[in-house]
């Protein structure tokens, strides 16, 4: 049980598309953080929120 190969498997070579994919997922993450901060700011200041306006 569980006693096999431990350690780095860092010898993986990714194809060129991968770095663009990672960039895209970081953009998605930033959108999520941005929408969260904006929506919560609107809600906590009593101005409205997502998905409608106050």
């Amino acid at each position: 049980m569980g006693g096999g190969s431990i350690g780095k498997r860092g010898d993986i070579q990714y194809e060129p598309w991968y770095k663009w994919g990672v960039l895209f997922l970081y953009i998605e993450m930033l959108i999520a953080i941005g929408v969260s901060i904006y929506s919560l700011y609107m809600a906590f200041t009593g101005r409205g929120g997502f998905p409608g306006k106050h």
Partner: peptide, 24 residues
């Protein structure tokens, strides 16, 4: 409803948009 919906939507948005990051 708008305020409560906002709180709920934040959960939904993060659950969707952080999913690729989890795969990464």
């Amino acid at each position: 409803q708008i305020a409560a919906g906002t709180f709920a939507a934040v959960q939904s948005f993060n659950a969707s948009l952080f999913r690729p990051f989890s795969g990464y």
